[in-house]
Amino acid sequence: SDFTIRIGDRTLHLKNVSEEILKILEELLRRGIDFEELRKIVEELIK
C-alpha cells in the first residue's frame, strides 16, 4: 500500500509498503524518531 509521512514541513512518500514495514515505521514515529533517521531507515528497507 502507499503511505505518506509528514513531519513538520517535510514529506516522505512510500509506495508498495508492506503492513509489517508500516507497523515498524509507526512504532518509530511513536518513539519520536528524527525525520532524517526515519528517511535513512526507509531507504534501507525499500532497497
Rank of each mutant, 00 (worst) to 15 (best):
S1Q: 15
S1I: 14
S1K: 13
S1M: 15
S1Y: 15
D2K: 00
D2G: 01
D2E: 02
D2C: 03
F3P: 02
F3E: 02
F3T: 07
F3V: 15
F3R: 06
T4D: 10
T4R: 03
T4W: 01
T4C: 04
T4L: 08
I5C: 02
I5N: 00
I5E: 00
I5H: 01
R6V: 14
R6K: 14
I7E: 02
I7M: 06
I7W: 04
I7A: 02
G8Y: 01
D9C: 04
D9P: 02
D9E: 12
D9N: 06
R10D: 15
R10T: 09
T11D: 10
T11F: 04
T11R: 05
T11N: 08
L12V: 11
L12D: 00
L12N: 00
H13N: 07
H13P: 03
H13A: 04
L14F: 06
L14C: 02
L14I: 11
K15N: 09
K15G: 06
K15S: 11
N16M: 06
N16C: 04
V17I: 11
V17W: 02
V17C: 02
S18K: 08
S18N: 09
S18D: 08
S18I: 02
I21G: 12
I21V: 13
I21F: 13
I21E: 15
L22P: 04
L22G: 08
L22H: 13
L22A: 08
K23V: 13
K23W: 06
K23H: 12
K23E: 08
I24D: 07
I24E: 08
L25T: 07
L25V: 15
L25I: 14
L25C: 03
E26L: 11
E26I: 09
E27Q: 06
E27C: 06
E27T: 08
E27L: 08
E27S: 09
L28Y: 09
L29I: 14
L29E: 03
L29M: 11
R30Y: 07
R30M: 12
R31W: 05
R31Q: 13
R31P: 07
R31V: 15
G32V: 07
G32E: 14
G32T: 11
I33L: 13
I33M: 11
D34G: 15
D34W: 03
F35I: 04
F35K: 03
F35R: 03
E36S: 06
E36A: 08
E36N: 13
E37C: 05
E37R: 05
E37S: 14
L38M: 09
L38N: 03
L38R: 01
L38W: 03
L38H: 02
R39W: 10
R39C: 04
R39D: 06
R39V: 13
R39L: 13
R39E: 12
R39Y: 11
K40S: 11
K40D: 12
K40Y: 12
K40A: 14
K40L: 14
I41S: 10
I41N: 09
V42R: 00
V42A: 14
E43P: 07
E44K: 11
E44N: 14
E44A: 11
E44C: 09
L45Q: 08
L45M: 12
I46A: 13
I46N: 13
I46Y: 11
I46F: 15
K47H: 11
K47I: 13
K47C: 05
K47Y: 09
